[in-house]
Simulated assay, not measured.
Amino acid sequence: MPETLTKAQTPAKEGLRERNRRQTLQRIADVGMELFLANGFDATTLDEVAAAAGISRRTFFYYFKGKDEILLAHVASYDDALRASIRDHASAGAPIDVVRAALLDMSARFQTPRTIAISRLIRESEVLSSRRPRNDLHREQVIYDMLCELWPGKDRRDRLRLVAMASSGAMRIAVDAWLEQGGKRQLTKFVQDAFANLKAAI
């Protein structure tokens, strides 16, 4: 999972108010995540997050509805990183090869002990755990939208949807296996294996 909100979320042009708001949101998200990792999600209070970020409790609720939304902000940053990575690997070949290359690149950047800890925090959150099927569908939609951007022909959409579904499933299998083994083996290896099995199956 991504560790901070990405530059892809930053508008090309923004005013002072927008920039200050984005920077404050980023600071709250970063401070909150550090406290969660250090003290545990349940043990960390909203007041502690607000105090560490140098804001009031009221200001916290202007940016986030609750602690879970800090975790959701990190999930959202993963989507932005995925979009950028697919664009960066548009020349990798067929649609499934483009997605594979993009996910391998992301996996190489995010396979750190800190990422494992953040992923576990997210999975231990009741709210986010209940959203997991929805998050998987959302990732599939992100992949599909990006493939449609690269291959805009309407006659290819059913095939691109299948690629998005299969690729998202392969990534879920890879991440699950990686977390089960505590990150002892590189995430990229699990992604490579998952896509090799996918190609063998079809």
Rank of each mutant, 00 (worst) to 15 (best):
S56K: 09
A73G: 06
W151F: 15
E140N: 08
D105K: 12
K65F: 06
Q186D: 15
A38R: 15
E18I: 12
A101I: 12
R134S: 13
R57N: 11
P152C: 08
D193H: 08
E124N: 14
D88E: 13
V191F: 03
N135I: 12
T6L: 13
I143D: 04
A196T: 00
D68W: 00
A102H: 06
D97G: 00
E34T: 15
E126H: 09
L104D: 05
S85L: 01
R58S: 14
T188I: 10
S125I: 10
L179I: 06
R19Q: 14
P11S: 03
G40H: 12
Q181A: 11
L16F: 04
V127C: 05
A166H: 14
F64A: 10
D193G: 04
Y78W: 07
A200W: 04
I86P: 01
V98G: 02
R17M: 09
I122Y: 02
E48I: 00
S168K: 08
Q111D: 15
E149K: 02
A52I: 03
L187C: 10
D193A: 12
A50R: 02
F61R: 07
D136S: 11
G54T: 05
G15L: 10
R123D: 15
W151I: 07
H89N: 14
F195Q: 03
P152W: 09
K199P: 03
